[in-house]
Amino acid sequence: MSGILVLDIVLLALILITAVATVEVRSLYSAVMLSSIYSLLMACFWVAMDAVDVAYTEAAVGAGISTILLIGTLVLTGSVETVRKAVSWPALAICAAAGGFLIFGTLDMPRYGDRDAPANRHPIYEGYTTQNVPKADGKSAQDVKRFEEEQAAIAQQQAGKHPGEPAAEHAHGAEHTDFFHGHVPNQVTSIIVAYRGYDTMFETAVILTAGMSLILLLRGRRGNPQRGGLL
């Protein structure tokens, strides 16, 4: 049994315990703190799965900001859960069925870390993760690929002629002072900001919309009515 597997099992067990405790606990402040712990454990789990960006977001948003906002909401609404009825069997059945279907759906997914998974074998995988910047002089992607192959061939030839010389110097554009060799090192940022730039722009607009809605709904409603409205 590898160490990673032990770590995964321990983390997942803790996550499960925290999730059940979050549901069961009566004091809502405790529930908020438990959900914060849940997010922190999830962040640890993402790190164990090598998804550092996701872990970063989970820790900052899930464990940080949402906890603060939930506490702020509890200040407004009240901190004790109302008394619940006994277990509602139809609701439990629906939840169990939905969860069962989701787990059944995951059976079709490739195994974790499978090198034959579609995500790892997709033919344009390289194109997603490298910014070859062919747009500047109107070259198509094929042109750039051919150019790169030629450059690689030239580099190989030169490497054959001068075995001591590093081939990589010739393969990459030495005419530019290009520290990133045409793509940024963080592939996640590269995809989010460059490849899916529109998507991220509208996500930002959605966040702005959320803030504006909150201003329109809450600002000036309590306390000081004369200070309502935008700006």
Binding site: Q131, H176, F180, G182, H183
Partner: peptide, 13 residues
């Protein structure tokens, strides 16, 4: 310098 412009754009964004 297109290769350096890409990170600049990302930074701005």
């Amino acid at each position: 310098n297109p290769g350096a412009a890409e990170p600049w754009g990302m930074t701005s964004v």
